[in-house]
Amino acid sequence: MSHLRYTIKRLLQAIPVLIGISSITFFLINAMPGSPVEVMLGPTASEELIAAAEERYGFDQPIHVRYVKYILAAMGGDLGRSIHYGVPVTTKIMERLPVTLLLLASSFAFAISVAIPLGIVSARRRNQPVDHGSRVVSLIGVSTPNFWIGLLLIIVFGYHLQVLPSNGLVMPLTPISEVEGATSRLDVLVQTAKSLIMPTIALGTLQMAAVSRIERSSMLEVLGRDYIKLARAFGVKESVITRKHAFRNAQLPVVTIIGLQLTSALGGAVLTETVFNINGMGRLIIQAVRTQDYALIMGTTLFFGVMFVIGTLVTDLTYAYLDPRVTYEGED
């Protein structure tokens, strides 16, 4: 089976999962006390007004009817209207999604590019000072709350040294006129980079630590394999062995771990966005909960699920690309 067919199959398999997520959030949200209309209209609204509004938003129908309607509409790409913002939920999400994706991409890039060399050095110099140092760093990394790292970074670089902005994220495609002090696209990009640094470190540290731990142990394991001994026996240079012969094999468990880290990274994005006042998906869901914006809570939760499903698919495809033994045949 080709990668393409596998991808399509996996996406189709994701549909029931996404319906499941929608269902869970739907019933959770409907367990909320009070109707959203009451919240929207405030405590002083008259009975008639409420009844009229409930009818308009369809809240007068029994829950199972609303459920079926919601799921059907969602499958058609309609997640309802945000009561708070007064726009369709999808519009709001599409506005916020790129921000979160940029943040996630940047923090994974940071995590991987630091963790892999760190893990390899650690494995090659096993039980030497470098190794001990990097193991301590990883241990601290997996144990530190990311929002706290964010706070510390803001204290040091935002307030004391005043070298990095501690508020918001400048998107690379923001119109130049909207970015303060920017006269060209390059200025905007510089601002983007600067505003990304601290959130990236805050969010990426956990992933970095987790990946470097697994990189180390996986590299150690691979370096002890017979095929590595064989390469040595045929005069291959140690550096080539690390870079080529052991590297690809050692990345297999790493890819798996990156997949498993997705869920904590997505959760971490909520906290990081809060700390740095970044208007992404994470802040959106918090705002939705604060304003009891039902449709928006359901929509954002669903999209977090979508991000997870796609992220997992990407890691699985990467795995299959790295390991020729993976066949899609037996997969179910």
Binding site: R225, D226, Y227, K229, L230, A231, A233, H245, R248, N249, L322, D323, P324, R325
Partner: peptide
């Protein structure tokens, strides 16, 4: 080497 199953790099 002794073990043909383990001595070739699988990737």
């Amino acid at each position: 080497f002794q073990d043909p199953m383990e001595s070739l790099n699988p990737v």
